[in-house]
Design a protein around this nucleic acid. Structure first.
Length: 427
RNA sequence: GGAGAGGUGGCAGAGUGGUUGAAUGCGGCGGUCUCGAAAACCGUUAGGCGGGUUACCCCCGUCUCGAGGGUUCGAAUCCCUCCCUCUCCGCCA
């Protein structure tokens, strides 16, 4: 959410930002609404001031026993109240409409973000490792997984529906190993680990920006709760409506959760394999930082996510998303893309964003810094995958496959698999 | 699921219809003291919105004591509905 005052005072900049995102939002309608709203507020408050004054006078008149005058004043106040009532409903409505509109405007892109309309205009900022060269035709995980008995697509469909998978044997164990490895590694690098609910209420999802605009992407329960699409939602909301101390910042959090996505708008994309499924595992990173340090914090977060890939020996590249490809809440986003032989290309495995004060304003997350400034200010929130576990499993299987159909286990994961060094087909 | 208690400022905790946005304590900030610090003492310290001014400070008004509605000239204080927390009982793990 942007501040109404900011939109009002920086209309041209906001217009440019919306254009850069190719996002349609009725800024002229908003400005008109905002003007009406302020006019109504002025009218109501003037009347309220008169009412308060008169009521105070009534108290005094009653004390001094001047009943007749008091009764006359009461009539006056009743009249004012009628007037207030007439305007107030319009004010309330204008307020609600204003908030509604503000909830649907995306964040302002950071000045350093390249302008562009879609992912083809994202800019690569660095590359690490070398994609493996195979002396044989490498298999895609949708063949390799079932052959090894570690991914079962048919049974995923049987148990739930299409785009759900079942993992067996080393598929299940490797998933658990990856989760532990990622959490342990981030923990050693200063992140505090959490365990959070997999369901969230509407207020929580509104605070991080999934609602009200993107309800179709979420699974909803009969209780009005939603399955979380990412742990970002819960980790960020941990501090909703709180005032943090500047001396405690930055706060670096991590959590493993399952993630659930309806993927309503993605029919036909990545239909093969387990790249895009309704339920997947993810280890998430979230930071709360001061405005002055949040961009540095974003760099650090991306480095932490990349560190996992480096440890796993998986080639990747990091791109900065252009304005047209960025998410709703983000001011700047790095996507980290791992090399996948099946795609013969890099594929997103982590997305790290600085949401600046966009979520903090919705969520009421502020910080205080006595001596530096009075009162409190909104913090900056950041989130990133560290990493998407399912896609990491895929990357390991595909990149570490050998000519005999077996898969080597990356060094760092072996302690988590009881020393196992390879995965072989089960006959 | 049943019964009871409660939701107040950064935190703790007073306050049952009239200058109460709100005592007191803690914490924070400023000051006195000190070489410096601690202690002590003095002062100060909620947020949203609108307007004036707009770089900042500041000033005025208004709303906010879980949420929404009602009673009243006037509500943190009375009434209703909802949400949440706690305690006990039941049930389940």
């Amino acid at each position: 959410m942007l501040d109404a005052k900011f939109v009002r005072d920086n209309a041209d900049e906001v217009r440019a930002a919306l254009a850069a995102r190719d996002y349609s939002w009725d800024i002229d309608g908003f400005l008109a609404l905002d003007a009406t709203r302020r006019e109504l507020i002025g009218a109501v408050e003037t009347l309220q001031a008169r009412r308060n004054e008169a009521s105070k006078a009534i108290g005094a008149l009653m004390k001094s026993g001047e009943r007749d005058q008091a009764e006359a004043a009461k009539d006056e106040v009743r009249r004012i109240n009628d007037e207030i009532g007439a305007i107030e409903s319009r004010t309330t409505e204008a307020d609600a409409q204003t908030r509604e509109m503000l909830l649907t405007i995306p964040n302002m892109p950071d000045a350093s973000v390249p302008c562009g309309s879609d992912e083809s205009e994202n800019v690569e900022v660095r590359r690490w490792g070398t994609p493996p060269e195979f002396a044989f035709e490498p298999k895609a995980h949708w063949d390799l997984g079932p052959e090894l008995g570690v991914i079962d697509f048919e049974r995923g469909v049987k148990l739930a529906k299409s785009r759900f998978v079942v993992l067996g044997r080393e598929g299940a164990r490797l998933t658990r190993a990856l989760i532990s490895f990622m959490l342990d590694t981030h923990g050693q690098r200063g992140y505090r680990e959490w365990w959070v609910p997999a369901l969230a209420n509407a207020e929580t999802l509104t605070a991080t920006g999934q609602l009200p605009k993107f309800e179709d992407d979420l699974f909803k329960t009969g209780e009005g709760l939603y399955l979380i699409p990412t742990a970002e939602v819960q980790l960020t909301n941990l501090h909703r409506d709180e005032v943090l101390e500047a001396s405690d910042l930055p706060l670096d959090y991590t959590a493993y959760t399952p993630c659930f996505r309806e993927e309503a708008g993605s029919a036909g994309r990545d239909t093969r394999g387990m790249i895009r499924v309704h339920q997947f595992d993810k280890v998430e990173l979230v930071k709360f930082a001061t405005p002055e340090t949040s961009m540095d914090a974003l760099e650090a977060m991306a480095a932490d996510a990349e560190h996992i890939l480096q440890q796993l020996g998986l080639a990747y590249r990091t791109v900065v998303l252009c304005t047209g490809d960025m998410g709703f809440a983000a001011a700047k986003t790095y996507d980290i893309e791992v090399w996948l032989p099946s795609y013969n290309d890099f594929k997103e495995i982590s997305s790290c964003s600085n949401c600046t004060d966009f979520q903090a304003r919705r969520a009421g997350i502020k910080y205080r810094s006595p001596g530096e400034f009075r009162g409190s200010r909104f913090v900056h929130t950041l989130n990133g995958s560290g990493l998407a576990v399912g896609r990491t499993l895929v990357a390991v299987l595909e990149n570490y496959q050998r000519t005999d159909g077996s898969v080597e286990v990356p060094e760092v994961l072996r302690p988590y698999l009881g020393g196992q060094t390879e995965i072989r087909p089960h006959v």
